[in-house]
Design a protein around this nucleic acid. Sequence first.
DNA 1: CGAATGATCGGCT
DNA 2: GCCGATCATTCGA
Length: 217
Amino acid sequence: MNEERTRLDRSFFTRNDVLEVSRNLLGKYLVTDFGAGRTAGRIVEVEAYRAPEDKASHAYGNRFTERTKVMYSQGGHAYIYLCYGIHHLFNVVTGAEGMAHAVLIRALEPAENTTLMLRRRRMNKMAPRLTAGPGVLAQAMGISREYTGTDMLSAQSPIWIESRGGLVNEEDILASPRIGVDYAEECAAWEWRFFLRDNIWVSKRRGDEAKTMNKLL
DNA sequence: CGAATGATCGGCT
DNA sequence: GCCGATCATTCGA
């Protein structure tokens, strides 16, 4: 098995098709190193947010505020914000500068230094709740909103994404509506959540999983 | 300046 | 399954 580690290059992120970038992120590795030890996880669940027409996106209608300005930067930057006053959600900015597309990373399969990840989550043993969900995976990886705007293509970035050689088969990628965007009217039905089939680290929420499986199989 | 609202989670029933 | 936590952000007065 080819296990060569290669950081994704700028052109991976600057592509305009955020749905394609989202699917391509499955199977890649999110890595952090803040000096106290490196942690890594394989990306198994993502959601695409496509500005400006996507009502679920913070940049819907090209809304530009202090928080969302990061979304307009060049692909490869990190957009991190606080959700429900508690959880830090990590997104990858994609597209050219000026396009506010983003991919929310929703779940990871722990891959490296699970000891440190468990400690950050104040957990004693391995369980899906370590990294199955956007808020908990950020906590496990040590990611907080102070890193929003970080260019992950910069050599000194403490957060980056790399390939470790394994490929994902297209038929192992399932799709469903995105989680928690019921307010987004017609956009709420768009099946822009992508996840790996039969992977125990994919987040469990709502009963839409079985329906999606039947529909796609 | 005040009020409403989340791209959620985990504990409790 | 339901519900409370908890606060940055946003928008309107």
